[in-house]
């Protein structure tokens, strides 16, 4: 067995083990902690599968932003007894899982070896698409409608979360000194990292979603450190959240009215358009994710 395959076997076993612990652990906090570990292991798995874009997204969203959201929800909640799954449920679940795994194995073995049409087509058309990195070209040009709609999902999720908080955001609790000090360092670092990921996105893995996660991290740290500006429920925050979708729609309508067709990017200015939309999107995603965090954090504080 070569060293590479040892690593792969251990990695596959690790993913399975962490996932099982996350599902089967009766303690909710333990399960959530295991879920965070799953994010780390999955990021490594994607790295191993030669998908650095997804590894980056998993590190940023899966274990980063989602982790902050989940842990915040759990830690402020009084510790309740976790519900232990009955023995029958575990046995049935494992059996069903085994059957599903077997069926999936049969199905996946039937996947033909012939390569898909798409990589070649992307490679052929990427000149003039506005980005050298294939993933970015697909997201912002070839299949830009999908990206627009994904951004819209976040907008409406944030709107829905905000609608459920019926009280205004409260004044911050006293913030311990180390948090303030840390925020001073962490905030610019996160913004810088996000900006780098955004700019890198045109030529290598990175882009609006990963950068947005960094910005969201920065806003969350600011919120925890007592700042009540963009991350709160003000009109400005909502305007930033929808700005990405509106900019995207404006681009679409503009290209349609100029007679080129919906979302058709001219190779001459495709690069500029892609970078502009990505920048606005990244800020929107950051503020939107932070809004979900704040809504969640405030909803819990309302005495009911």
């Amino acid at each position: 067995m070569s060293p590479a395959s040892v690593l792969d076997v251990v990695l596959a076993a690790a993913v399975l083990a962490v996932a099982l612990v996350a599902v089967l652990l009766p303690s909710r906090r333990g399960a959530v902690s295991a879920f965070l570990v799953l994010g780390v292991v999955l990021a490594v798995l994607w790295a191993r599968l030669d998908a650095p874009d997804i590894a980056l997204a998993e590190a940023a969203l899966g274990s980063g932003v989602a982790g902050a959201l989940l842990m915040d929800t759990l830690t402020a909640d009084p510790a309740r007894p976790g519900r232990r799954a009955g023995r029958t449920a575990v046995v049935v679940g494992l059996l069903a899982g085994a059957v599903a795994l077997a069926a999936l194995t049969v199905v996946v073995r039937a996947v033909p070896d012939e390569p898909s049409l798409l990589p070649a087509a992307v490679a052929e058309e990427i000149h003039g698409a506005g980005a050298d990195h294939a993933v970015t070209a697909v997201l912002l040009n070839f299949r830009s409608l999908d990206t627009l709609l994904e951004a819209a999902v976040l907008v409406f999720a944030a709107a829905g979360a905000g609608a459920l908080v019926r009280t205004p955001v409260r004044a911050p609790d006293p913030v311990p000194a180390p948090v303030t000090a840390l925020a001073r360092v962490l905030l610019p670092a996160l913004v810088l990292l996000g900006t780098w990921l955004l700019l890198a996105g045109t030529s290598r893995p990175g882009g609006a979603f990963q950068a947005g996660a960094m910005f969201a991290g920065a806003l969350v740290v600011a919120f925890v450190a007592g700042a009540r500006f963009a991350a709160s429920q003000g009109t400005a925050a909502r305007a930033w959240t929808v700005a990405g979708v509106l900019a995207f729609v404006a681009l679409a309508a503009g290209t349609a009215m100029l007679g080129q067709g919906w979302l058709v990017l001219d190779p001459r200015w495709a690069g500029a358009a892609v970078l502009t939309v990505e920048t606005v999107l990244a800020v929107s995603i950051g503020v939107g994710l932070a809004q979900v965090f704040v809504a969640n954090s405030e909803a819990r504080r309302v005495p009911s």
Partner: peptide, 10 residues
Amino acid sequence: REPGPGPGPE
């Protein structure tokens, strides 16, 4: 502590 209903690691 998260009191579980039965004996277990928790």
